[in-house]
Computed example of a mutant assay.
Amino acid sequence: MYNYLVIGSGLFGSVFAHEVTKRGKKCLVIDRRNHVGGNIFTEQIEGINVHKYGAHIFHTNNKRIWDYVNQFAKFNRYTNTPVANYKGEIYNLPFNMNTFNKLWGVITPEEAKQKIEEQRKTANISTPNNLEEQAISLVGTDIYEKLIKGYTEKQWGRSAKELPPFIIRRLPVRFTYDNNYFNDKYQGIPIGGYTGIIKNMLKDIDVRLNVDFFEHREELEALADKVVFTGMVDQYYEYRFGVLDYRSLQFETKVIDSTDNFQGNAVINYTDRETPYTRIIEHKHFEFGTQDTTVITEEYPMEWKKNLEPYYPINNEKNNKIYKKYKELADKESKVIFGGRLATYKYYDMHQVIAEALTTVHRELLKSPSN
């Protein structure tokens, strides 16, 4: 009945389905949730587009990807400038001259570099072997203790000494007075929310919601020549090599009628260890909203367990060894395509997911003699 059964209507699945449908293939997209869009789903509350599964700011240096996503929605020019709250002290993120001035009173880049270098030497780290050592090597002990350690250990549920160093390398460090979090040339938020993007991608495609692939696996697989799987790779293989670790999140969303501006910024990170949530999102600021009320979301990280949503793969040595075994199986599949963050056990940003999906479509259709 179908050329492809696409499991999951997030970015990877939706881009794949859209592209192969354009080329004459027939797809069925299923999702166990009651909506399309996966974790980029936005819903309107009090006239405000609420990022239901955490803040998503689109950013890329790739003009091809930027032009691609702009087919499906008009983007504003939201610039991500999060703020850190450490026990009531406010600091700019990413780490830049505004941060260094507030912390140390330094004025020039040279003064900031000298301060960081002093702390690096005191720490006496030659080759960073974990996140803590990597962070101190990058920005010194003061910033690590106030703005990295508590937040990171809440986020990952592990000591920073147990986490791999590459996690912290994603964070920009600047010696300019620039609060723009991303270095990317293109960034913004789709006006009207991300859900519209996915609906536009899937508008000519059969979609079934509230369908759990694993409850109807045999029946669903029989509907298509091939399967595109975007869920957890270990679940697909019935955990035969063990369960991969993920971090999950709990969101507490509140409508606040008493004010139209709760915190003055879209995202504020709480970097002390004692505050139970990692950040508060005030959604209206993503689209420069002027509504009389506001909606906020507190974000609480937790260890993933069955029946929770998996958000972040934990790419430590133990999990990477397990994933390698699953990948060896996946690479041998002739009728199953694995894609997206969960199926490839890799932390992807949105633009990277889109690029991966487009590459996968190209590779897949080149295999077919009719293409």
Score class of each variant (00 low, 15 high):
75 F>E: 04
103 L>S: 08
39 N>H: 14
250 Q>W: 12
296 I>T: 01
160 A>Q: 00
364 E>T: 13
357 A>F: 04
194 Y>S: 06
289 G>M: 11
26 K>D: 06
244 L>C: 08
90 I>E: 14
230 T>M: 02
216 H>T: 09
23 R>D: 08
362 H>K: 15
38 G>S: 10
171 L>S: 10
321 K>P: 07
270 Y>T: 02
291 Q>K: 14
197 I>R: 03
96 N>D: 10
109 P>R: 01
333 E>Y: 11
208 R>G: 14
100 F>M: 05
205 I>K: 04
54 G>V: 06
35 H>M: 09
150 G>P: 03
17 A>N: 10
87 K>M: 13
182 F>Y: 13
327 K>T: 09
320 N>E: 08
248 S>C: 15
166 F>L: 12
148 I>V: 09
162 E>C: 05
366 L>M: 15
349 D>F: 08
163 L>P: 00
202 L>N: 05
46 E>H: 08
182 F>N: 04
250 Q>V: 13
142 D>V: 09
324 K>G: 13
67 D>H: 12
346 K>L: 08
53 Y>V: 05
63 K>W: 09
129 N>I: 07
192 G>H: 01
150 G>A: 06
206 D>P: 04
213 F>S: 00
190 P>Y: 03
2 Y>L: 13
360 T>W: 01
297 T>F: 00
213 F>K: 00
162 E>K: 10
83 V>W: 01
362 H>L: 12
245 D>R: 06
49 N>Y: 08
111 E>V: 07
307 N>L: 13
142 D>I: 09
58 F>C: 07
255 V>Y: 00
310 P>Y: 04
314 I>Q: 04
348 Y>V: 05
239 Y>G: 04
275 T>P: 07
37 G>S: 14
136 I>M: 12
